[in-house]
Each structure stands twice: as structure tokens, then as C-alpha cells.
Design a protein around this nucleic acid. Structure first.
Lengths: 113, 113
DNA sequence: CTAGAACCTGACATTGACGTCAAGGGCAAG
DNA sequence: CTTGCCCTTGACGTCAATGTCAGGTTCTAG
């Protein structure tokens, strides 16, 4: 699977995929001519990366926790704590979003009256 | 209320408050010497602005919908549609966050085993 | 073989919500 | 009056994820 195919499969641009690799979030096997080739599993990994990015994790944070997700052998208590912290952060973010959502919904409800 | 007081009351920096004003999100009465003064109501308004920003609305979007929120006389069907669209966007964002959250939670659960 | 699509690296540009710094004016307390 | 803090405008810096462009190489279809 070359980069263009992975791009269309994941919704990430080729530029983004190279960036993810540069940040150590994904790896690629190179053909003799230097072109990147990916295994099927890269699709799921990139999708996970994108959802974590969308959840507000930085690429550095993802770099820290992704090996923990991908490779059981690297799982450590410190990484578990990190994951829990990020989970808590996302939970807080969801709560705040819901409050904002409700504020907006109230505005709209009042709107009709 | 001067800018420093509003800043500590809302958690926004003075820089941010000037930025919000520059973007047309808030207004201020100026003293003879040019210093900004705000009414008490500015606190709530700035808090609302911040939560909308945190929810991913751009300052331009907030500029569009905030008068609708603040001033009933400007409410129009177009603005209501805009509000509904933003509400839907936030709902989608919450759903995606929950999926990511659950993915992360699963990882942590698997972690113990 | 050849055209065109896809890929490569490297570098600069962009965006939005700010931070920060400079150079100065305003204001209350002692 | 002065000390020190708060305020002003204006301009440039930052950060992170991507866009974009240039100049060149490689793959694929006909």
C-alpha cells in the first residue's frame, strides 16, 4: 500500500502521513526507490492517530502513548498513568462541551418564544 | 471595571480581551484617558465567548451568533439556522470524543490483563 | 518508449488565538 | 512629587498541523 492509497483510505493527506512519520507516529517500509509502503494495519493506526489528534492530544503525547497501545511489551505504569490522565482530560472536555451545548440549546429554545 | 479586573474575573488575559474587542465580540466604554471600562455583564459575556471558543467556534462565527444571543431584536431565521448548525457540529464533536474516549478506556482496561 | 500520474525531499506559507516586548501615558498611596 | 502598578497601541513572535510549491525521480498504462 503506497502513500496515496493510505491517504484516501484514512482521509489524511499524504503530507499529513509524512508528518506523522516524521513525528514517529507511524513507520513505513521503503522500496528500493525510496517510496513508502504500508501494511493494511496502517489504516487503523492512522485512524486512531487522527481521532486522538481530534480529541486534542498533541502528536508528542500520541507518540508517548501510541507504542503502549500498539505494542503490549512497552506498557508501563507510567504510560498507564499518562493514558488515564488523557482520558480524564477528554472526559473534562466532553463535560465542558456538553455545558456549552446546553447553553446553545437553551438559546435556541428561547428563540422560538 | 477595568481590563485587569475583567481578566482575573474571567480567566482571560488582557491581551485576549483586547483581541475579543478587536474581533467585535465585546465592546468597552473608554475613559477620558482611553482606558477600557466594562459593565458587570461583561463577565458573563466573556465566559460565554470562552466556552464557545473552547467548543471550537471561531471568533468569526461567534461574532455572527453572539448578537443573536445577547440581543433578542437581532434574532433572525438565518441566525437561528446558524446556531442549529453549530449545535449539531458540537453534538458531532461530542460523539467523536466519546468514541475516542471509549477507545482509550478499552486500552486501559486491556492494560491490566 | 513515452506521457502522465504518483512519489520523493526540502523549504517556505498559513491559520487562529493568543504571548511578548517596546515605548509611553495614567493614577492612587505615601 | 515620586514610586510602582495598571493601562495604551503597535508590531512581531509562537505553536501545531497542514498546505503548497519547486525540482526531480519513479511507476504504470498504452
Amino acid at each position: 500500500m503506497r502513500i496515496g492509497e493510505l491517504a484516501t483510505a484514512t482521509g489524511a493527506s499524504a503530507r499529513s502521513l509524512r508528518y506523522y512519520e516524521e513525528q514517529g507516529l507511524i513507520t513505513s517500509r521503503r522500496s528500493a526507490s525510496g517510496q513508502r509502503h504500508y501494511p493494511e494495519a496502517a489504516v487503523g493506526r492512522v485512524r486512531l492517530i487522527r481521532s486522538l489528534l481530534a480529541a486534542g492530544l498533541s502528536s508528542a503525547t500520541i507518540h508517548d502513548v501510541l507504542p503502549c497501545i500498539a505494542d503490549e511489551s512497552i506498557r508501563t505504569p507510567a504510560l498507564e498513568a499518562r493514558l488515564r490522565a488523557e482520558l480524564a482530560r477528554i472526559d473534562g472536555q466532553i463535560r465542558e462541551l456538553r455545558r456549552t451545548r446546553d447553553t446553545l440549546a437553551e438559546v435556541i429554545a428561547d428563540y422560538r418564544v
